[in-house]
């Protein structure tokens, strides 16, 4: 009779392309829909956030420097790798979600994969749509070009665990931003599994960094960090969100949050080129036209 011991996965943070425990050595229990213990996730500290921002910062230049076409290919590759691990994602979503059915989990996974493909397609098109030539009074070409803001902090929504995370992450990185994601406090495991997929998908180290832990502890250092250029507070409750926005204002960090329409995660409205624009700065160039 074989009584095999199950080998459980340690869900770790994804920082600078590596899976790491917290420098603080802490972890916290994550419970599933039925209240049963799923795993212990890393309880990150402000220093982990700092390290993640440093990794994102150093990856940003070369990520933005790649051709738009190449970034599109890489985002498409994420979808490819997720597709082949669909079953794993379905199981993770099912375990995490309250009252989640198998069908809903499978629908969510499919929608998340499609969302990567949708944004991958925008990689070499959004600049044409969002930028353009402006008519000016003078002998100049005047061109506006959207450029990535830099390092973007994303506070991922709690529920459901996968689709909203992808919906907020993909438009950030497609333009050449790098991201520091604070995974959902309640359902962080799916985010870690997504990180494993990203690690296999040609996404360069440091472009996406995923920290897990307690919102109240991790959001303030992220919001106050001078090197964070934009913040997506979609996953924050109103109180924390207001505090974070105030802290972010001290260093002129752009603050974004999903609208009610955008929170209909499975709908068309949750995906838009304007979400890419929300994390871009517009550069305007004047060029003499001659006669």
């Amino acid at each position: 009779m074989s009584s095999r011991l199950v080998v459980n996965k340690t869900y770790k943070q994804f920082v600078g392309g590596a899976f790491e425990r917290s420098e603080s050595g802490r972890s916290y229990p994550v419970v599933g829909a039925g209240g049963q213990l799923l795993a212990h996730a890393v309880q990150g500290s402000r220093k982990d956030v700092r390290d993640a921002v440093a990794a994102a910062r150093s990856a940003q230049g070369s990520w933005a420097g790649r051709t738009a076409y190449n970034r599109g290919q890489i985002l498409y590759r994420v979808a490819e790798v997720m597709e082949s691990r669909q079953a794993e994602f379905c199981a993770e979503v099912l375990r995490a979600g309250d009252g989640c059915t198998e069908e809903a989990a499978s629908r969510e996974t499919a929608a998340a994969i499609d969302r990567w493909v949708w944004y991958a397609g925008w990689a070499d098109k959004f600049a044409t749509v969002l930028g353009g030539a402006n008519p000016v009074a003078g002998p100049y070409f005047n061109l506006s070009v959207p450029e990535p803001a830099g390092v973007v902090g994303i506070v991922a929504p709690d529920e459901p665990p996968l689709l909203p995370l992808v919906s907020r992450l993909a438009p950030v990185i497609v333009s050449g931003n790098t991201a520091v994601v604070l995974a959902s406090e309640r359902c962080p495991l799916v985010a870690v599994t997504l990180a494993e997929t990203l690690a296999l998908s040609d996404i360069p180290s440091g472009v996406v960094n995923i920290c897990t832990g307690l919102r109240n502890e991790l959001v303030p250092p992220l919001a106050r960090h001078v090197a964070v250029d934009a913040l997506d507070l979609t996953g924050c409750d109103p109180g924390l969100s207001a505090d974070a926005a105030r802290q972010a204002a001290a260093t002129i960090t752009r603050v974004v949050s999903a609208s009610t329409a955008e929170r209909q995660w499975a709908e068309e409205a949750a995906q838009s080129p304007y979400l890419i624009d929300a994390f871009c700065e517009t550069k305007t160039v004047w060029h003499p036209k001659g006669r």
Binding site: V49, R50, V53, R57, R224, H225, V226, A227, A250, T251
Partner: peptide, 8 residues
Amino acid sequence: GCYQRRED
């Protein structure tokens, strides 16, 4: 208490 940006 704010983490800084190297570029500054």
